[in-house]
Design a protein around this nucleic acid. Structure first.
Length: 268
DNA sequence: CATATGTCCTGAGAGC
DNA sequence: TGCTCTCAGGACATAT
């Protein structure tokens, strides 16, 4: 998703296909023949990322956006298996192919025109990237919200790139109560939250992400991540907190598990 | 407008 | 053993 596919920049697209899969084929917009007509014969001008999405800018100005969600992988070379290989892009360049593999099939692939891309994935719709977010960014976007801070951190319009595992880890690093209402947080708390966001995401990337029980999450070389071994709270219900020793608790917020330490996450 | 809930999918693991 | 049930995850459509 990072270095591997980045080498596609400059290559000519020679083919595009959606592969047959066990059940429903992956959701493509527009339909496959129309999409193919708009990318084959053109060059990949740039490979980028918008939060959790991979975006290939085509020299026509269109953007091919792959949204892997939890169990999707974007890569080149050999995919994890032939099963669940959903979409394939053939290239004439240093990478012969870029594929999208998705175990559960919740991911999406869409080709946007330049205008659609700006409207739907531009800064007005997707917040600043978590690796560079500031306290002022968070406060300006969430400072008046009545939502619990954990739920708000998952809103990609506020900050891009945080999922359920990292929301929990970030709040623990910041010492904040996941149930705290955004509107009650101080400027100082927003600053700690932004700093924790940058640190946790950076550390998670350096450890190649979190591969959970289903083993679906892999890095660009099809290797398991190791950040799950460094989780301080996620998936650790009942175990002692490494910072204060109190047992980690699990609650449900907006139908998602939240793991946190009731001992040292009291900040608001 | 802001916020809350249901939905898509597959495989792992629990429980019987 | 082998079945059924529940759960996990991200983003969006729909409901409040």
């Amino acid at each position: 998703m990072r270095r591997g596919v980045a080498a596609a920049a400059g290559s000519l697209v020679t083919g595009f296909g959606r592969l047959p899969c066990p059940r429903k084929p992956i959701l493509l917009t527009p339909r496959v023949d129309r999409l193919r007509a708009r990318v084959v014969g053109r060059r990949v001008a740039e490979v980028g990322r918008i939060g959790k999405r991979v975006a290939l800018r085509i020299d026509s100005g269109d953007r091919l956006v792959i949204e892997p969600r939890m169990t999707g992988l974007v890569g080149s070379g050999e995919p994890p298996s032939a099963t669940y290989l959903r979409v394939e892009l053939a290239l004439d360049g240093p990478l012969a192919r870029v594929w999208f593999w998705d175990l559960r099939g919740l991911g999406k692939v869409r080709l946007y025109t330049a205008e659609e891309f700006d409207d739907e994935l531009g800064p007005s719709r997707i917040g600043p990237d978590g690796l560079a977010v500031t306290g002022a960014d968070l406060r300006s976007r969430l400072g008046t919200s009545r939502r619990a801070v954990k739920v708000a951190l998952l809103d990609q319009r506020a900050v891009a790139g945080i999922g359920n595992i990292y929301a929990a880890e970030i709040l623990h690093a910041a010492g904040l109560d996941p149930g705290a209402r955004c509107a009650r947080l101080t400027a100082r708390a927003w600053g700690r939250l932004a700093e924790a966001t940058r640190l946790v995401l950076d550390e998670a990337i350096r450890h190649e992400g979190s591969s959970l029980g289903d083993g679906a999450y892999r890095n660009r070389l099809n290797e398991l991540g190791s950040y799950q071994l460094r989780h301080r709270v996620y998936g650790r219900e009942g175990l002692p907190c490494g910072r204060c020793g109190v047992a980690i608790a699990r609650i449900v917020q907006a139908q998602r598990s939240t793991y946190f330490c009731p001992g040292c996450q009291r900040g608001r």
